[in-house]
């Protein structure tokens, strides 16, 4: 059992998903961005520019390591080699935060490079709790677990996602990473209110908020089908949901994610400035 927020040193300010093409601009003047997040798996090589840049970045800014490949929601055991690589990276970098997803991405020997869904029930809860325990014990630090974007539902689910996450946090002592774009995407796709999701989310466990852009499509029945693409500006209703969340949770570290069709630095800086502006409306 790990204490809440023991290792969490990300500031309650705007952060950005790090993209190497902006390295020179960031080192020159990153304002208004105060911290950066990197995907763990991109820094598991043996050396070269990626690790050198990450080291230099970490000397100037708080860095969050965000894993996308541990498959915590997988039916099988965690990959011991991958867990060892994560430990090596966290020991080497000593990041301000480590987070992963409520999802699976590997089956047998195949890595599928996507965050895949799982049913919310007692069996999943037991398995995911054991995986989180193993991660926290191996890394020697608390982790944050992120809520997914959902496109479909499982007949085998008998718990709400918020209750499932609250129970995981209670059992393991992990913190939560609340992605408000994922909340908006899932709520639209599955037909519930994003505000009621926030109302039932264990906000006292949240150590970081994610914001990102989504794509709009339609399903077979002509209903809106939103896709978590991280490929453009954050949508207005997601900014509104952020305000709704911060009013209830208080200030938190806010991360802007933009991973595909990455724009020039000023566009990213403008999104980060908008996140900073949302924070200034919140009483400390």
């Amino acid at each position: 059992m790990f204490d809440q927020n023991r290792n969490n040193r990300l500031p309650n300010r705007a952060g950005l998903g790090y993209k190497p093409q902006h390295y020179a601009e960031i080192m020159d003047n990153a304002a208004p961005v105060r911290w950066f997040e990197v995907h763990a798996e991109n820094y598991m090589g043996q050396g070269g520019r990626p690790l050198a840049q990450l080291r230099a970045l970490s000397e100037r800014f708080p860095v969050s390591v965000h894993g996308v490949g541990l498959s915590i929601g997988g039916e099988g055991p965690l990959d011991p080699e991958h867990l060892a690589r994560l430990k090596h990276l966290c020991d080497w970098l000593n990041p301000a935060s480590f987070s992963e997803h409520l999802a699976w991405s590997s089956h047998d020997s195949a890595f599928l490079n996507d965050l895949l869904p799982l049913p919310y029930n007692a069996a999943s809860l037991a398995r995911v709790s054991a995986h989180i325990d193993e991660v926290q014990e191996t890394l020697g630090r608390q982790m944050l677990l992120e809520n997914p974007s959902s496109y479909l539902a499982f007949e085998a689910s008998d718990m709400e996602e918020t209750g499932f996450l609250a129970e995981l946090a209670a059992r393991t002592g992990c913190g939560l990473l609340l992605d408000v774009n994922n909340v908006f995407v899932s709520a639209t796709n599955l037909g519930y209110s994003p505000q009621s999701y926030i109302d039932t989310f264990p906000l006292d466990k949240v150590g970081e908020i994610h914001l990102g852009g989504h794509d709009e499509d339609k399903d077979d029945a002509g209903r809106p089908l939103l896709i978590d693409s991280h490929g453009h500006e954050i949508a207005d209703p997601v900014w509104a949901l952020l305000d709704y969340t911060l009013e209830r949770a208080g200030p938190l570290p806010l991360l802007v994610e933009w991973d595909n069709d990455v724009p020039e630095w000023p566009v990213l800086a403008a999104e980060a400035a908008r996140a900073e502006a949302a924070l200034t409306k919140v009483p400390a």
Binding site: Y151, A153, F154, N189, D220, R223, L225
Partner: peptide, 18 residues
């Protein structure tokens, strides 16, 4: 099997997203 669109219909295109 065992997946739906959240509105009681088969997952259909929603599985295709993954």
């Amino acid at each position: 099997d065992g997946l739906n669109d959240g509105h009681g219909a088969p997952a259909g295109k929603r599985f295709a997203v993954y």
